[in-house]
Simulated assay, not measured.
Amino acid sequence: MLVLSRKVGEKLLIGDDIVVTIIDSRGDGVRIGIDAPRSMKVHRAEVIEAVREANREATDADDAAEQRLRDLLSRRDADTPEPPAPGTPPATDA
């Protein structure tokens, strides 16, 4: 990781077409401006991680719901008698 010191108003160049400008410096943080092509995605890491975690939770919930449905269907199938084979006379209660 490259670590740099910059003052308000100073810029960093990343490649040929990304410029990061230090906008403001406060006691607990720094405000930056990013000038990049529209085709370049720029996201805060914590937002991306929150979306990934939400997707994981949704997938886990889907998996759990699917398993519950499979369990219900297998119980229903176990409680339902097999239909008679074709050509077999119907069963009679005697």
Rank of each mutant, 00 (worst) to 15 (best):
R38L: 15
T88F: 02
K7A: 12
D16Q: 14
R31E: 06
T88M: 04
R38S: 15
K7F: 09
A61K: 11
D28E: 13
G9P: 07
G9F: 03
E82M: 13
S5F: 03
T80H: 04
D28N: 11
D24W: 01
D28C: 01
A64K: 14
D60L: 15
A50D: 08
D60V: 07
R70L: 15
M1Q: 04
K11G: 02
N55Y: 09
V47W: 02
S39E: 14
A45N: 04
K11V: 12
G33D: 09
A65K: 07
L73H: 10
R75E: 04
I22K: 00
R31Q: 06
V20K: 10
I48D: 10
A36Q: 03
Q67L: 12
M1I: 00
T59Y: 12
E53A: 08
I48G: 05
D71Q: 12
E53P: 00
I23K: 13
K11W: 05
D60P: 06
H43Y: 01
R6P: 02
E10K: 02
A78Q: 11
V51P: 00
I22C: 01
G15P: 09
L72R: 14
S39N: 09
T88R: 03
L69M: 09
V51H: 04
T21P: 01
D63K: 15
L13G: 11
M40F: 12
R68N: 03
R76G: 13
T80Q: 05
R56S: 08
R68Y: 10
A61T: 02
V51L: 14
L69N: 10
A78N: 11
A45V: 14
A91C: 01
I23Q: 11
G29C: 06
A64N: 09
K11R: 15
L73D: 09
L2S: 06
E46A: 11
V42C: 08
R52V: 15
R44S: 05
A50E: 09
A85R: 09
R76Q: 13
D62I: 11
T21N: 08
T80Y: 03
R44P: 00
L69I: 10
V8T: 11
R38D: 15
Q67T: 10
A36H: 08
D93H: 04
D16K: 13
A94Y: 01
A36I: 07
D71V: 15
A65W: 01
D16N: 15
E57P: 10
P89N: 03
S25M: 07
V51D: 05
P90A: 12
L13W: 09
G33M: 08
G15F: 13
V3C: 01
D79T: 00
P83M: 07
D60G: 05
V51R: 12
D62H: 11
P37Y: 04
A45G: 03
L2A: 06
E57W: 13
A65G: 06
D77V: 03
R70P: 00
V30G: 00
I23P: 00
E10P: 06
I32Y: 04
K7Q: 14
T80F: 02
T59R: 15
L4H: 00
Q67I: 07
G15S: 08
G9T: 09
G87W: 04
E82V: 12
M1S: 09
A78R: 14
P86E: 10
P37M: 02
A64E: 13
